[in-house]
Amino acid sequence: MKDKPKLLTVLDGVTLVTFLAATAMVFFYAPTERVMGAVQKVFYFHVAAGWVGMVSFFVAAVVGVIYLIKKSPNMDLIGIAAVEIGIIFTLINIVTGAIWARPIWNAWWTWDPRLTTATIMELVYIAYLMLRQGIDDPERRARFGAVYAIVGFLSVPLTFFSIRIFRTIHPVVIGGSDPSAVGAFDMTPKMFQTLMFSIVVFSILFIDLIWHRVRLGKFQNYLEELKIKLQV
């Protein structure tokens, strides 16, 4: 357990190389968008980060269900790892969105459904961390965390759906677009390839990070065990 698995080292390398490649693609391969200019390039990582955020919270909910059935402590480690990563990537998603929105929508923030939902989602998972912090017994902490991860993940699409019934100004780039949305654009094949590649790279990054975080959690547990042995 103490040695770093070889596969993880390989994955670290792959993540680094592909990440650099993705960055290069964004700047040199993908064409600069005609109307918006350079700021549109934030779009690739913006979408990819949002994707990782959603996947993380989904993973947290799924391992939550498994934890409640199997009660295996490993599931809890994955759960907390996924939520922490999800919070960071959702934050990246929101911040890059704001960077893009400032010149395009002429505002850092609008009460657009996606933006609002993303932020409410962020608050749900910050509440998740606060809940865990307030509980000392590890078994109960894991149980409550699992329950809240499930309830929280369920409410996110409902929130989006509710807000969505208002009209949106957020551009829907993938899967049919509403031309009236400000900042909408048609992707060229090169743009599309860059986007897809970014998403793949971020997914690899996600797997790499969650692996590291779970390992860290195991070390933490091991340390606790040693401490208790010393006391006895």
Partner: peptide, 30 residues
């Protein structure tokens, strides 16, 4: 559901609204 969790936490006095409000937003909107 959430209050029966928050009541068992050390921070029980402050936790409930923080847990409940972000989750209950869809109901409130409707």
């Amino acid at each position: 559901l959430l209050s029966s969790m928050s009541i068992q936490a050390r921070t029980r006095d402050i936790l409930l609204p923080i847990l409940l409000f972000p989750v209950i937003i869809p109901v409130l909107i409707a």
